[in-house]
Amino acid sequence: MNIGYYPGCALHGSSDDYEESLRACLRALDVQLQEIDEWICCGATAAHALNQKLSTALPARNLALAERGGFGEMLAPCPMCSMQLIKAQKALAGNEGLRREMSGIVELEVRGTTRVLNLIQVFEQVGLDRLKAALKSPLKSLSAACYYGCLLTRPPDVVEFDDCEQPRSMEAFLTALGAKTVDWSYRTECCGGGMTLASEETVLDLSHKILSNAAAHGANCLVVACPMCHVNLDMKQPDIERRYGVRHGLVIYYLSDVVGMALGLPESALGINRHFVGKA
C-alpha cells in the first residue's frame, strides 16, 4: 500500500516519537508512506482563532501539494491537522468560487480531491484480518482506556469518523490484538489541546480528570492517536501528579505503539522509551 503522508509540525518536533512509532509500525505492515514535498503547517488553532481565511489557505496549500504529488489519499496522523485539512478539502470540493480564490492565494491549483485519513483509518484499510494474521505477541497485560479526545470525531459533519459520543474504532483493534479495553466516560473529553503553553492550569485540570477517570475504571494505560493529547497526558503527567498530589502512573501509548508491540516490534523501535511515563 502506497499513501501520501502529511506529518504536521508536532511529529517533526517534540512528538517525533509518534512519527518513529507509526513509521516502524506501518513499515512492518507494508504500508509505504510518501511525505508530501514542501508541506507547511496547517495553521492549527492559531489560524482559525485569529483569521478564518488563513485557516483555509494553509490547508489548501497542502492539499494542492498532495494533488500535485498525485495522492488520492493522505495520512495526517495529528487530528488537528487532519480536521483542518478535511474541513478545507470539503469546503473546496463543494465551492468553485472558493477553489478559484484559494488557488490564487496559495499559488497552486487546488481542487480538494485528496482524501485525508487519520491513523485509525489507515489501520482500518490494512484490516483487522491482516493485523490478526501478523499478531506475534498478544497484548495480554494491557487494560487500555482508548482516548479519542476532541478532533478525531469532531466536528462530526466535518471528519465523519466513528460515533462522536461513543466511539469504538480503537477498541476494535485493541480487542483484536488481545488487549482488554475498559468502558470509561472520558473517551471524547478535551485534554486542553494546544493550551499547554498559553494556559497550563487548564491543561493540567482537564488532563487530570481524564487520567483519574481512566484509572477509576481499571485502566493501566491509555491509548491515543494525537500528539497533543500525548504531550498533555504523558509529558505533563508528572506535573499533574505534583499539582493534585496523586500518583497516576499511567503509560500513554500511541495507537501505533500498541499495534507495533503486538506485531513483535521492540519498544525502542517504536520510541516508547522516549515517553515521560514509563511502565511501573
Binding site: W184, S185, Y186, S212, N213, A216, H217
Partner: peptide, 9 residues
C-alpha cells in the same frame, strides 16, 4: 453524563 466513582455525573 459520565460515570465517576460509582456516581452518574
Amino acid at each position: 453524563i459520565t460515570q465517576e466513582d460509582g456516581k452518574l455525573v
